[in-house]
Amino acid sequence: MLRLPSFTYLQPRTLEEALAMKADAGAEGMYVAGGTDLYPNMKRRHQEPRTVISLMGIRGLGGCETRDGGCAVGPCMTLTDLCSHPTIRQHYDTVAQAAGLVSTPLLRNMGTLGGNLCLDTRCNYYNQTYEWRQAIDFCMKKDGHICWVAPSSPRCWAVSSSDVAPVMVALGAEYVLVGPGGERVVPAARFYHNDGINYLTKQPDEILCRVRLPRPDGWDAVYHKLRRRDSFDFPVLGVATWVQWQPGNGKRETGRVAEARIVLGGVASWPQEVPEAGAALAGTSLSDEAIAAAADAAYRPAKPMDNTDFDLSWRKQMTRVYVSRALAELRRRRSAR
């Protein structure tokens, strides 16, 4: 049996309590929500906190309420609850869809939105047991000095593998963080770093308390996921596309794109926005040519490394296909409206 290392488990009831516990535990303390990322990692000795502080009992970190026309989601909502929440399904179906593509139904019953957005980056030199990593010598993400994927690289290229994070970045969601110094709000895009080790701009003691989704007014989004199997598997490519349709005269919209964002998951250490791809769509009505241009723009910077499932050159090729398909679906949704 692969077992957890020993640690102290704390179950605070309030945010203040949680912050105080974390302050006490210092660098040896970590938060946990559903545990579906942290516990496997601890069993493989990627993280070895002496104190684990559960956020699941904290009042106010669950649920979902509408505010200013937008929606604020509690990070401790499980992915299953998120998928089935009426507000999310009605106004943010792409969030529900991405969450519904995470892993398996059983994991979604446990895993939370917050955990998904803070998910550790992945690499198949890293997501291995201690003994395996020892056999090739440890890499810089844990216990070592070199990167086995790119041995001359000064940085770690572990992959951002969250399904929901690219959608949040594409939507322009905002994260509310609470730390010892109080509350701050960061746009989703600025929550992530393109570095496999320091992949979050969040301080270790900060707690993600709310995820604010923009009001649903004239935008639409679609998420497509590539993986080997339709269950269990992390994305080797996630494509989140978002468009703001131009407002037309009065209520009628013209069917032209005012602004667009294309964010790729699984190809970098953060959800990778490709501004050129979004720019290629502005002012168009998602014609075949516009889609091809955007797909081409998204293809160029996508830089998969040899550290996930599938051959990397094929994964890069697939960026074009998946971006095109996601945009085509946006266009279909538009005309079906």
């Binding site: 488990y9 579906t36 516990y39 446990m110």
Partner: peptide, 18 residues
């Protein structure tokens, strides 16, 4: 898989204390 409060979950990733 076991059910906790009716929900099927993975007992290998659930802390017993929880």
């Amino acid at each position: 898989t076991v059910r906790v409060d009716g929900m099927p979950v993975l007992s290998c990733l659930v802390l017993a204390l929880a």
